[in-house]
Design a binder for these strands. Sequence first.
DNA 1: AAAAATATGCAAATCGTTCGCAAAAATTTG
DNA 2: CAAATTTTTGCGAACGATTTGCATATTTTT
Lengths: 147, 147
Amino acid sequence: MQIVRKNLTFQLDKPILYMMTKKRRRLLELLQESVQPLSAQQVYEQMEESLDMATVYRGLKYLEEAGEISSFLLDCSERGVERYYSQSSSCHRHFLHCVSCHSFTSLNECPLGSLEKIEKETGFRVEEHYLTLKGTCEKCQINVRGK
Amino acid sequence: MQIVRKNLTFQLDKPILYMMTKKRRRLLELLQESVQPLSAQQVYEQMEESLDMATVYRGLKYLEEAGEISSFLLDCSERGVERYYSQSSSCHRHFLHCVSCHSFTSLNECPLGSLEKIEKETGFRVEEHYLTLKGTCEKCQINVRGK
DNA sequence: AAAAATATGCAAATCGTTCGCAAAAATTTG
DNA sequence: CAAATTTTTGCGAACGATTTGCATATTTTT
Ligand SMILES: [Mn+2]
Ligand SMILES: [Mn+2]
Ligand SMILES: [Zn+2]
Ligand SMILES: [Zn+2]
């Protein structure tokens, strides 16, 4: 127990038994450099050095467990269900998804007010929430024909 | 064009070329009778008469296109990603998901205020939104050991 | 009643993701 | 440092929910 490997560039909330390797660090950097959340496939395509898809999935899982990145599901009518990954910035975020060009825009703040009213009304203890907004981004509204 | 088959118990927004069969009607009834949203698998299990899984999927797709039901994705850490179906009641709804007993509770009203502020801030035209709240339901808070 | 259209069951295909295993890389031990 | 141990990686196979093709059954139209 409590055996934590070295070679970590970040503090772990809970000790996990693995290592931060070159490939995993590169995965993380890619997501930190990207303004947009990326799917596993997109991460894979943006990797310069070759990397097996299974390793991408394992790496993303590792980084998410370590708290460095977080993911959400997007149910896009054109592209189907995809999981998107982004760095875990300080606080939680919500994204707007453009149904035309499929880009994401980050919200500055959470549009959900206090959840107390909901908790009182339902008796629920609310622990997490996920919000996805879909619509058309500024660019796509101008280029009416889409991208 | 504009050929719409008979045997429909509801009005279609857009004409579609298929029929409301006994089996599809039973699918719809099941969802209308259920307080909880149901997954394709749950619908399948609750059908008394035998029905192929492919027919369940095709039927649910048909009903959703006809606007009679709607679906959303749930990303549950225990059960993975599942699509849930429920009748399309008058207005859009949001659900609370209990991470202990996996039940759903419906919110009375949408906790999202006006989206105008977001639209101004981001330039986005918001067309849809999906909100999932996760937490612990009243029962599960009492039975601390979960269901 | 016969012809045309659509739904259904069944089996196979699909596709993103996960898994098992042997080889490679990183870490620990002495 | 080299040897022993642990973890990661690539590769191919497995997985599982959903979709698809096709022959047959059901429903609708004529
Ligand atoms: Mn929020
Ligand atoms: Mn709402
Ligand atoms: Zn756009
Ligand atoms: Zn519960």
